[in-house]
Write a protein that binds this DNA or RNA. Structure first.
Lengths: 105, 105
DNA sequence: TTACACTTGACAATTAATGTCAAATATATT
DNA sequence: AATATATTTGACATTAATTGTCAAGTGTAA
């Protein structure tokens, strides 16, 4: 029941599945291979633009990849916080509230 | 059923309730009044340290204030994202997974 | 019109994010 | 073993975001 892959793992798996080298993909992203290597090993974070480009290059679903990316960003914010779980729940509450009241304002 | 106050609103309300001036509180925080003014009007974000100090100064529950603070930080990350809600849900899933598997590792 | 609290915006300093490059490590292949 | 290729590592440069100061402005009340 292995279900939790990091963005980095997803990117590496799919790059290798397509037989692409860091060199090939990083060229399309217009960055050094070093950075892509770090992104795949979760040593650096990608930018949103890079994620979208990577989805194209690797034929991955953009929305899915973006959701994974954003959720990692969220977790990064609270990773060292004892109250992280509670903060997440409150954020969801607020989100509901915002969405409910988002009309002409 | 007004339930959603920003951290800034909470801070201002409680500062005024105690009859304190920006000058008084900002001195304790060791910052310019301008910044505190901006924090209270949500024009700037406070730091975690400032939030904890403010909880002390204003006699507010630290955990509560911190949760509010963190949840705002989370929302800030996804405020312009169409997929924000979904990302939040996925973050919660991942959080559960992490907490479940956090033993000696 | 003076006094006081707060706000605004231009700017400076500091810190974090994002990138390059060259050298170090694998891992094959000859 | 030696060469070739792919990836990793870390020192460093550049850029962007955060966090702050300061001085002038606005609002309100004595």
């Amino acid at each position: 029941m292995k279900e939790n892959k990091s963005i980095g793992e997803i990117l590496r798996e799919n790059r290798e599945k397509k037989g692409l080298l860091l060199r090939h993909v990083s060229a399309k992203l217009d960055i050094d291979t070093a950075i892509l290597s770090k992104i795949e090993r979760s040593e650096r974070k990608a930018s949103k633009e890079q994620i979208l480009k990577l989805a194209e290059i690797l034929d991955l679903d953009k929305d899915n990849l973006l959701i994974q990316y954003l959720s990692e960003k969220i977790l990064y914010e609270i990773k060292d916080e004892a109250l992280g779980s509670k903060a997440l729940k409150v954020a969801e509450q607020k989100m509901k509230y915002i969405n409910k009241n988002k009309s002409g304002d």
